[in-house]
Design a protein around this nucleic acid. Structure first.
Lengths: 158, 158
DNA sequence: GTAAGATAGTCAATGTGGTTGACCAAATAG
DNA sequence: CTATTTGGTCAACCACATTGACTATCTTAC
């Protein structure tokens, strides 16, 4: 170990992280399409997850996703139109419109979790379980702690 | 080591990859803004990189980025408007409009490379150089080989 | 109990990025 | 010299995001 390895250029790391993310998400949606959910988009899975089993409202969903209530409302509209979410009145507050995951949405959510588990297992088979664990641990260390915003299109594009 | 660790849920891996990517890009642009490039968006850096030192045309840029020539043309328009790209006629083919990085664009590109190097060094300081190398190697192994598409907004949202 | 304020949701206008289809001009092939 | 391909743009449209304005309803205070 007399000489250090030549330093690697820094610009590849973000590209590889993005490639890894995109590979997982593309694999997920290819499999979801095979299992009967071809109309689900990457964004939608995150939204369904954010709505959760207990349901929410548009305003609260917007806060969870880091987007405006108007944007949340429009995304809900789309997911209602394709049958993954439904709205209901709140008997205790006529202003609120409760948003719930439909049975179809719950099916998509459950399958997504299973597919992600299988994909992670495939990574562990190829790389070794301890390498995948290390990758997760390291990313947890470096990534901004309180991060979660789903404004991908706007964030990326401007 | 009689019993294996409980398996980790698979859905966290993509989130962590995205968080790592976003953290790097956000750090990059915070620093770029400090160094005189506040109007650069995440997307723009990739586009500048894809134009490269030799310049291109809209059609070729679209192919490199995995988007249509029309979309590439619009993105070029925006980067021309903020002074990072410029157009010129091709004396050998009157149909083509050459796209080149301006000096300001080259400055942004150079600073981006330096900042990415510094950010990677910071990761190596915290995690250990061999861990960052391993992360890159593992991602290279798992990510789709011929991947590169920059249609992030459309891909993610639909 | 009524007036004032906060909150939930929607509508409208706008910006950015993406798509497809149609079209013109110029280069290339026959 | 036609015929085809290629580069670029225009136009129409969709998805996601934003801010500002507005209504309806609940909550608070006097």
């Amino acid at each position: 170990m007399a000489t250090a390895d030549p330093p690697r250029p820094g610009f590849q790391l973000p590209l590889l992280l993005l490639a890894g993310f995109r590979t997982l998400i593309d694999n997920l949606h290819a499999e979801l399409a095979r299992e009967g959910h071809p109309e689900l988009r990457p964004l939608h899975g995150f939204v369904l997850q954010a709505v959760g089993a207990d349901g929410t409202t548009a305003t609260e969903l917007g806060q969870r996703l880091g987007i405006s209530k108007q944007a949340a409302g429009k995304t809900i509209d789309r997911l209602v139109a394709v049958g993954y979410l439904e709205r209901a009145d709140d008997p205790r507050d006529a202003r609120r419109r409760l948003v719930r995951v439909t049975p179809r949405g719950a099916d998509g959510l459950r399958r997504s979790a299973e597919i992600f588990d299988r994909l992670r297992a495939r990574w562990a088979d190829t790389l070794g379980a301890e390498r995948v664990d290390a990758m997760e641990d390291d990313l947890r260390t470096m990534a901004s702690a309180n991060w979660f915003r789903l404004d991908m299109p706007g964030w990326f594009g401007g």
